[in-house]
């Protein structure tokens, strides 16, 4: 086993470390050099954190809103958003895009689905009773529907009945106003699928609204 000569390392350090040139007075004390190096790293980390926060914290409301609609539960939504920010921060160095909101929402979406799947939520996809609501509420006229469509509570209840992928696409389009392309990236579906899924989601939402209005009568 080769043994390193501690003195040699100590001698070499100040010469090899770029930061050392500013600390000529302390050149012979490796501890000072270490301190300078660590200080620099801490500054770098701070800068990185600042630029991350500047880029991503403005989208906190969007992140929280999406998570809340997906998870339908405030506590889970907050946990997911926090987790998503940590994940985003860890991979922030690899993010070179310009659309920070879409990037963050993708992470929020994926983190939410992880939790949904873990808790065995059955409604992630739209396999179930998509057709069931589609009939039987024809009595509710378009005018009545429109009248009720300003009722936030009613809309919330109807939205919460929808499968997650419908809640997701409606939120992204109606509330975030994202383009089909952005939605396709976030929901990880082909661009061509966005329009048809959105149409199905809106139709289903209409039916749920009609069903609720019909019950109220």
């Amino acid at each position: 086993m080769p043994r390193y000569d501690a003195n040699k390392i100590a001698m070499a350090l100040p010469l090899k470390t770029a930061d050392a040139s500013q600390t000529e007075d302390f050149e012979s004390d490796p501890k000072i050099v270490k301190f300078v190096v660590v200080k620099k790293r801490e500054e770098q980390a701070k800068e990185e954190l600042t630029s991350f926060e500047e880029a991503m914290l403005p989208h906190l409301d969007a992140a929280h809103n999406l998570a809340k609609w997906l998870l339908r539960n405030e506590e889970d939504a907050q946990d997911v958003v926090q987790e998503a920010y940590l994940r985003a921060f860890r991979s922030f160095a690899g993010f070179h895009g310009t659309n920070g909101r879409a990037w963050l929402l993708t992470i929020v979406r994926n983190t939410s689905y992880t939790l949904l799947k873990k808790s065995h939520a059955v409604d992630v996809t739209t396999s179930f009773d998509e057709e069931i609501h589609a009939s039987g509420h024809e009595s509710v006229s378009p005018a009545t529907l429109l009248e009720h469509s300003e009722d936030a509570q009613l809309i919330k209840e109807a939205m919460d009945e929808l499968p997650a992928e419908f809640r997701e696409i409606l939120t992204l389009r109606h509330q975030e106003g994202l383009s089909y392309k952005e939605i396709a990236d976030i929901a990880q579906i082909p661009s061509g699928t966005v329009m048809s899924r959105l149409a199905r989601a809106r139709a289903k939402l209409r039916e749920c609204l009609k069903a609720r209005i019909g019950k109220e009568k």
Binding site: D61, A63, N65, K68, I155, H174, Q175, L205
Partner: peptide, 13 residues
Amino acid sequence: IGAIGNATPYFKA
């Protein structure tokens, strides 16, 4: 769609 979009609650953080 306009009405629904406007009336959907937005959950701020």
